[in-house]
Amino acid sequence: MAILNKLVKLEWRKLKQKSILGEVAIYWFILMLLPVFFIKMVSADFGQNFDSLFELIQSIQRGLVLFGASMISQVFIEEYKNKTITLSFGYPISRRKLFAAKVLFIALFIFMTTIASFLLTGVATYLLNQMFPIIYFSITGSNIVSYFSGMIVGSFIVTLISFIPLFFFAIWKRATVSTVICAIIAMNLPNLSSIFHFNNELIIVILCSIGALSLFLSIKTADRIGEI
C-alpha cells in the first residue's frame, strides 16, 4: 500500500500541474453556470422542482468525462508517445501495480474534481437564483441531503464512465483523438436516451459496467498489452 501511495504521488509530480489545474478551473467555471443558462434559455421546467433541477445538474457534471479523457491521455498515451513510460517499466515493481497506481491517481483526481464541481455548481445556482429567480420551489433540508448523497453517487458514475476508453483506445491503440471521441459519445448517451426512448438509468448502468470492465482489463493485461 505504501508503494502504491508513492506511485500515485509520483504520477502527479510527472504531470504539467499548472496546465491541469487551469483546465480544471475552466471546466468548473463553465459547468457552474450551465444550470442557470439551461433554465433561462432552454426550459424553465428544470427549475420547477428539486428532482428536475438535480437531474439537470447531474447531466451537466457528466461533461467532466471529457476531462477524464484528457487525464487518461496525459497519464498513459503521452507517456507511450514520449517513451517516458520506459523509465516506469524499469521500476522494481510489477506493471500491474504500476498501472493500478496510474488508474488510482486518475480515479481520485476525477472523483474529487467532480465532487468540487457539484459543490460549486450548487452554490453558484443558489446565489444566481437570488439575483435572477429561476428556481420555483422552496429548498428544504431534505433537498440538501439528497443533493449531497446524489453528488457522491454522481461523482462515482462520472469516474467510472471516464474509464471507458482506457483499455482499447488509450492503452492498446494509444490514440488520443479516439479516446476523446469515445468520451464525448459516452458522456452524451444518457442525455440522448429520452430521444430514443431508452431507460436513462439502464444506460448509465451499462456505461458504468463498461468502464469497470475497461479498468479490469487494463490492469489484468498490463504485462502483455502494456508492452511498448
Rank of each mutant, 00 (worst) to 15 (best):
I181Q: 11
N143P: 10
A116D: 02
I157R: 00
S138Y: 10
A101W: 07
S142L: 09
L166A: 00
Y27T: 09
F67W: 09
F54L: 14
L108W: 01
T159C: 01
V153Y: 13
A69N: 02
N5S: 12
M32Y: 03
L202N: 07
E78H: 09
I3Q: 15
F168A: 05
R224G: 04
L15M: 13
V75A: 02
H197V: 10
I106R: 03
F132Y: 14
L4Y: 02
L160H: 01
Y27N: 07
G22Q: 05
S218W: 00
L192S: 09
M71T: 00
F76Y: 13
V205Y: 12
L4E: 02
L160K: 02
W12M: 12
A107V: 06
T125H: 04
I157W: 00
E23G: 14
K16H: 11
I228C: 06
I110D: 04
G226A: 09
N49Q: 15
I195K: 04
F169I: 03
Q130C: 04
I228V: 15
L192G: 08
W12R: 15
I225K: 11
G141D: 13
N199Q: 11
F99Y: 14
D45S: 15
V36P: 00
Q58I: 06
A212F: 15
M41T: 07
T84E: 13
F156D: 00
G211V: 07
L15F: 03
I144G: 06
L192H: 10
F148V: 12
K83F: 11
G141S: 11
N200I: 14
Q58H: 14
I57E: 04
S146P: 08
I77Q: 00
F37S: 05
T86S: 13
V36S: 02
S142F: 03
T125I: 10
G63P: 11
G154Y: 01
S162D: 00
I210C: 11
N49M: 08
G22I: 04
T84H: 12
K14M: 14
L66W: 03
G90H: 11
G141M: 10
V153F: 09
A100N: 04
I135F: 01
L21C: 05
F148Q: 07
I26M: 12
V145C: 05
A100F: 06
M1W: 03
M112H: 04
P35F: 00
Q48Y: 13
R224A: 08
I134C: 11
P35D: 03
N188Y: 05
F99E: 00
I3W: 11
S138T: 10
G150A: 10
F54Q: 14
V180D: 01
T114Q: 04
S142Q: 14
N82C: 02
I77L: 05
L120P: 01
I206W: 03
I152V: 14
S209W: 13
E11R: 10
K6H: 13
L10C: 07
